[in-house]
């Protein structure tokens, strides 16, 4: 049987008349870095929200770590506690940078000395140790992004969801975060990233899914997709002729 960490079967979601995603099925395996790419408006965000239990699909089902999502037995909460979410827009909660990073640990009842230690460790790793005491709403875009990342990682999730996670970063910090993702998956974590950066997909991802107009156009290992793009638009993307 597959080791599928995420198993999405025939998922569709419409908002009024607009069909955001239609009949998408994909599996994400443990330990891999899975990229979801597509032009803007393709439905990537909706797909991601469906996969992270934030948006119940109209049709289809999602299984996460062997549990059924969107069932009423409280499994959604268990699922959410195993996933780390780094949204595209780094959203800071009220308080300091430290408060933000510490939050997932505090809600898991980690004792405060332990919290402090782990927050310091991860902040140092991401180069934001000096701004821990700063009001989170007042930091720069790049600092917020790294804080958001640290917050998603600090409690050692099983799956990391990343949406355009190096958008606001200079190359040095981008490289640090990418190496963190690699390190994370090498230790058994799974990463799902939504991106439009061709080179990042090549650098990082193991498998990718291409979503266009709400449908899954192609899914497979990176070199397979690059070698045999399913249609003209995909070909233009993988050759770099067209940017998404």
């Amino acid at each position: 049987m597959t080791d599928a960490v995420i198993d999405c079967q025939g998922c569709s979601k419409a908002f009024g008349n607009k069909h955001a995603i239609t009949d998408i099925s994909l599996k994400v395996q443990k330990g891999e870095i899975f990229a979801i790419i597509g032009p803007s408006g393709a439905g990537k965000t909706t797909l991601l929200r469906v996969l992270t239990t934030l948006e119940p699909p109209d049709k289809g089902r999602v299984r996460f770590l062997g549990m059924n999502a969107y069932s009423d037995n409280g499994s959604d909460q268990k699922i959410r506690r195993s996933l780390g979410y780094v949204p595209q827009k780094a959203t800071m909660l009220a308080g300091t940078v430290e408060d933000n990073i510490a939050l997932p640990l505090k809600t898991r009842g980690v004792p405060s000395t332990e919290v402090r230690k782990r927050v310091d460790e991860i902040a140092e790793r991401f180069g934001i140790l000096e701004i821990l005491r700063k009001n989170a709403s007042k930091v720069s875009g790049g600092e917020a992004q790294r804080t958001s990342f640290a917050r998603a990682l600090v409690f050692e999730p099983k799956v990391l969801f990343l949406v355009e996670f190096i958008a606001n970063l200079d190359p040095a910090n981008a490289e640090i975060l990418e190496s963190v993702v690699r390190d994370f998956t090498s230790k058994g974590g799974t990463a799902v990233m939504v991106t439009h950066k061709l080179l990042q997909v090549k650098r990082l991802a193991d498998r990718m899914a291409i979503v266009m107009e709400g449908r899954l156009v192609q899914v497979g290992k990176i070199k397979d997709v690059f070698a045999k793009p399913k249609n003209e638009l995909v070909r233009k993307f993988v050759t770099g002729e067209m940017a998404w």
Binding site: R49, L54, Q77, K78, R80, P87, T107
Partner: peptide, 9 residues
């Protein structure tokens, strides 16, 4: 979304 994704009570 962020708060929900944290899976808190």
């Amino acid at each position: 979304d962020l708060v929900r994704s944290l899976g808190v009570s």
